[in-house]
Design a binder for these strands. Structure first.
Lengths: 110, 110
DNA sequence: TTTTAATATTGCAATATTACGATATAGTTT
DNA sequence: AAACTATATCGTAATATTGCAATATTAAAA
């Protein structure tokens, strides 16, 4: 117990859950917002933007990168991180579909 | 440690993170998809839809409800759950904005 | 009113996440 | 090469999440 049983769900469900989970921490939302604001970025700046120690920020960046929400490329001895918009389209597809379907349905419960 | 320090982030960042976190499990994605498909729902059906024991499903429903993603109303001795589209608009606002901004920017790194 | 059905809560074990100090790595500058 | 800078990894403590059996609750049915 304690571990999610991913094999019981569809690939799409697991993918959406992974993306949402990666956004499921305010520090990671803050990182995404910061990357969006500056467009291009060196990680050192992110450490200064957040109320977290450098290893913790590095860990959050790793999770965002693993989920595919950001990309990173080596730039001298720093690393340039930026948003990967493609992956956000998976999320927006899911959420916009929910809103679209619900706006065409009349309330029939709750 | 182990606990997220929400007071260091903006209210909006915490709200987005909470919503994303609630979607950050494939069982909860599956529940949302099921509610979307049937529109109105009795929880018993959800238990049959998922490869999880009843208490576990109940717990996931509670988390979705706490985050505001679903609403529930008592209907006899069952409970009718359905999607709360308003809250999904918060998420779509965030994600659609990212996609919009990135589609207007030319690639300049990564 | 006893039984049944649907759902929630409790308690607990297994695992995951968050956070950070210490340390490692790798490129840059001197 | 030695020192410096930026970032990653390791180890570990605190806390949270996941999942379920057992049990509680509440309304309907018999």
């Amino acid at each position: 117990m304690g571990a999610t049983n991913t094999e019981y769900y569809t690939e799409h469900q697991n993918e959406l859950a992974n993306l949402a989970k990666a956004l499921g921490h305010p520090a990671r939302v803050a990182i995404i917002e910061y990357l969006l604001r500056v467009d291009t970025c060196i990680c050192g700046d992110i450490v200064n933007e957040l109320p977290l120690a450098q290893p913790t920020v590095s860990q959050h960046l790793k999770e965002l990168k693993n989920a595919g929400l950001i990309k990173g490329s080596i730039e001298g001895n720093a690393i340039c991180y930026c948003i990967n918009p493609e992956v956000f389209k998976t999320l927006s597809g899911f959420i916009n579909n929910i809103i679209a379907i619900k706006s065409n349905q009349k309330e029939n419960c709750c």
